[in-house]
């Protein structure tokens, strides 16, 4: 995302569509994006929905939490955890980084930066 390039925002869903301290999956063209509302920390995150470990479309159904204040999501399949800040896999050095999307809330809608 270059500084000069204008960010394209995709209106993903209403804030109430996302459960408190949980996640949902949205479809944007051919992409699946997981959106998380870390309600207790008043934070929103968006990542790819694909868990790179076994290539499963699943991360939005994962438990979110934190370790040493770093927000993370745990894949439901094998409990690998990924940083919601950097996308790095926190539980294994063998698993790839996941993509993090920029996210913003405007007028009670969730927007994800898609380009």
């Amino acid at each position: 995302m270059g500084i000069n390039k204008k960010t394209k925002w995709f209106r993903a869903c209403h804030v109430n569509d996302v459960p408190a301290n949980g996640g949902v999956c949205i479809q944007y063209q051919n992409e699946q994006i997981a959106i998380f509302h870390f309600t207790s920390r008043q934070e929103w995150y968006a990542t790819q929905n694909l868990c790179p470990h076994k290539q499963q479309m699943i991360l939005s159904r994962g438990l979110i939490g934190e370790t040493l204040s770093e927000a993370k999501v745990a894949c439901p399949y094998h409990k690998n955890t990924f940083s919601l800040i950097t996308g790095k896999c926190l539980s294994s050095s063998e698993i790839d980084v996941i993509k993090i999307y920029e996210i913003k809330i405007e007028d009670e809608f969730v927007f994800v930066a898609c380009e």
Binding site: R41, G65, E66, S69, K72, K79, T81
Partner: peptide
């Protein structure tokens, strides 16, 4: 969970303590 965290915990929880 929120009440438990507030009464006896610290921070915001994780995939271990939540279940």
């Amino acid at each position: 969970f929120e009440a438990a965290l507030e009464s006896f915990g610290t921070g915001f929880g994780c995939e271990i303590c939540k279940p």
